[in-house]
């Protein structure tokens, strides 16, 4: 770990205030991230997506967040103004979202959505941005990029949509990528292609990645390090290839609930949840 850390996060808390009271979505998450692939795994509502959103300060307006530290390189993400955050988003930290059907603007052409990122941060003319966008489409292995450039999102497939999403988010050459369930909405056959493409781009561009997923197997294969989240807390942090040695009962329960081809079982066990997992972690447990 001689490299300087890209991202440092300490004690992130996100809560939602509603008429029915306060819901704590993230309760004291800390980690740091270099140019590596860090996975966050957890079930729905465990706070993994909110952690990703909080890093970009893109939480819903009903949410409030606190943290002791949230730094990206030299930039203090907590103190940055909204204006400064606009310089950080896209340029330094970018985010790939789950379903291109919803995350691409349906009435804006593919090309325009890519050039927009580039022009926002690079201040170039339309011609240069256009050439660059076609280059990006080529880089995400879209055949006939000049044609796709002029197409609308509904005219392309889901897999292509996700390639466009990747091109759009990497257009301004960020160094940190938050991938929030980037393949969950895709067909299984396409999923592998997208992951492979993402991996190539991560390698060649030397990116740090926060890979948010509910798929334990995927994260195990794909990431260097894994955080297991439960009820807004990181219950376990472990090297991906040592996941089998996990000690926390929740992680063990998850691993045990996975079917395996060579060990047929009649019935998969149902995860027994211990209310104690919800308790706030003590300082040295973190």
């Amino acid at each position: 770990m001689s490299e300087p850390r890209l991202l440092q996060l300490q004690d992130l808390r996100v809560s939602f205030h509603s008429r029915d009271g306060v819901v704590d979505a993230v309760r004291g998450v800390s980690f740091s991230l270099g140019r590596e692939k860090l996975g966050i795994v957890g079930e729905s509502g465990s706070g993994k997506s909110m952690t990703g959103r909080a890093l970009m300060r893109l939480l819903p307006s009903t949410a409030t967040m606190h943290a002791k530290t949230m730094r990206f390189g030299e930039i203090d993400l907590l103190a940055a103004s909204e204006r400064q955050m606009c310089q950080v988003r896209g340029r330094h930290i970018a985010m790939i979202m789950q379903d291109p059907k919803y995350s691409l603007n349906p009435v804006v052409t593919v090309g325009k959505q890519i050039t927009e990122t580039y022009r926002r941060h690079r201040r170039t003319g339309g011609r240069a941005a256009r050439d660059y966008a076609i280059e990006m489409l080529d880089a995400v292995k879209i055949r006939d990029p000049a044609r796709v450039f002029h197409q609308y999102p509904h005219e392309i497939s889901g897999g292509m949509g996700q390639r466009v999403m990747i091109a759009m988010m990497l257009a301004a050459e960020p160094s940190l990528l938050i991938a929030d369930e980037p393949t969950s909405a895709l067909d299984v056959t396409v999923r592998f292609e997208i992951l492979q493409l993402l991996d190539e781009l991560i390698q060649s561009r030397h990116l740090g990645v926060l890979f948010i997923s509910h798929d334990l197997n995927l994260v195990r294969r794909y990431c260097d390090r894994v955080l297991i989240m439960y009820a807004g807390q990181v219950v376990e942090e472990i090297e991906a290839d040592r996941l089998n040695e996990a000690t926390h009962p929740y992680t063990r329960g998850l691993l045990d609930s996975m079917p395996r081809i060579h060990r047929p079982r009649h019935r998969l066990p149902v995860l027994q949840r211990d209310p104690a997992w919800r308790e706030p972690l003590t300082a040295d447990e973190r």
Binding site: R89, G90, M97, R120, A172
Partner: peptide
């Protein structure tokens, strides 16, 4: 304003008015 593509547009760093 709550649609995913709006969040994506903000994640690209676009200004509020854009």
């Amino acid at each position: 304003m709550t649609q995913e593509y709006v969040i994506a547009a903000r994640a690209k760093g676009l200004s509020r008015s854009a």
